[in-house]
Nucleic acid binder design. Structure first.
Lengths: 239, 239
DNA sequence: TGATATTTGTGCGTATGTATC
DNA sequence: AGATACATACGCACAAATATC
């Protein structure tokens, strides 16, 4: 049996090192020259192994700086009930939210369509930033019909939580009716807030939440930092 | 009542033009200078309108070339049953698949874990390209346990369809057990196959399909061109 | 291949109306 | 009322990418 290529062995070894926690997330690997010396191979061979690992998203090189262990992305379940606080807490991380803007204005076309309103009807808009363990995870914009929810903005300002604020306004439960997902590149504003570089990959989801009677209560758009989040869908049922 | 900004009016007007089909997808809008003349405003004002539309993904500018109407992305439902042919055909487009590679080899670690096999156990691997209306939509790699499916590669070569090939091998139905989604940037190989530029956004999904008895039959990874696809999840049920 | 025109991207300066303190 | 900040709009010039001949 042919033994596998040296670079594969090295890649496996380093992958194992990372898996065993000998290099923690964000840590810098030894320089390529040092790794080459350790494994007794040419630097090119180490580079081939690192290239493979970078392609798999395990590490990311920074020219002139070093090769760093990539942060393992946070799992974010997209199911019938999407709850940021629960999702993050379940993964053992500490959730937090930061308010960027709270306002009431007229609904745009797509917002009106999603919420089943007339264009221009008053809506509450909540722009914010979601964090896990102090690290920005996602930018979001939630749009709510204003008429049935007069006290929502005040509740949001207090709690910062959509779930809690809706409960205060009399909506004890809501479920996800539809979700759409695309990939985008971060623009300057998103990059700034999410502390990623411009042009980094972004997962954009749009979703509509409905109350138990089927009335839309929230139209949400979320921009996840692609490097930090994996959306997971567990055994969902179609139509 | 304050009239709204000129640039907003222009953005609405152009958005309407696109919606009405006066500019079809892929078409080039008149040059900024011409639009400025048409609306009787400064070029900056037109640019502000176009910037808004670009931010919403309605158009995308190409320096030196023009501003083009963005293609409306193909909807791709991710539900309990994920079937490429049906998904595309339902959207009124013509599906096609192109085989890039068919082989049998030993399972890697992650593949073995997903398929509930020992690492190194034989697996069939199907690398391919999915197209809708002749346009590349996604790259995929499907991995199947080889032992229970001896004739699979031949069936795949004939039909190019996973569903059909599995049926030939005695698996009449299969459902999606788990799906994971992240955003990446296209590398050179992916860019080449998908005919997008390197660094363009990619939607990567990994999923496991199981037969009615709950045994994993396929471990699939798919790289969607982010600009051309929107994943949709309709009313799924969690855990 | 190379020169030229076209088109978008960027920067600066100026001016005006409208909120906000 | 005054000062300040901000959004909007116009004008000009040049850089950078692309298209064309």
């Amino acid at each position: 049996m042919a033994r596998s290529a040296i670079w594969k062995t090295i890649a496996n070894s380093l992958t194992d090192d990372i898996g065993q926690g000998r290099y923690s997330t964000g840590a810098k690997l030894p320089a390529e020259a040092q790794l080459a010396a350790r494994f007794g191979v040419n630097r090119h061979t180490v580079r081939r192994a690192l290239a493979e690992m970078a392609d798999q998203g395990l590490v990311h090189p920074r020219r002139g700086s070093g090769v760093f262990v990539a942060a393992t992305p946070t799992d974010y379940p997209i199911g019938k009930r999407v709850r940021f606080h629960q999702n993050i807490a379940k993964g053992g991380q500490t959730p937090a939210k930061q308010i960027l803007a709270l306002e009431t204005r007229g609904a745009g076309k797509s917002e009106a369509a999603a919420l089943d309103l007339e264009p221009g009807a008053p809506v509450h808009v909540y722009d914010g930033l979601s964090l896990a363990d102090e690290q920005p995870i996602a930018l979001f914009q939630s749009v709510f019909p204003a008429d049935p929810l007069p006290g929502l903005l005040a509740a949001l300002e207090q709690t910062q939580s959509v779930t809690a604020a809706l409960k205060i306004c009399g909506i004890a439960d809501y479920t996800r009716a539809e979700t759409r997902i695309t990939a985008k590149l971060a623009n300057a504003t998103q990059a700034l807030h999410l502390r990623i570089s411009e042009g980094a990959p972004i997962l954009r989801t749009t979703g509509v939440n409905i109350d138990p009677k089927g009335r839309p209560v929230e139209f949400g758009r979320t921009w996840f930092a692609g490097d930090r989040v994996t959306l997971t869908l567990d055994s969902q049922v179609g139509h």
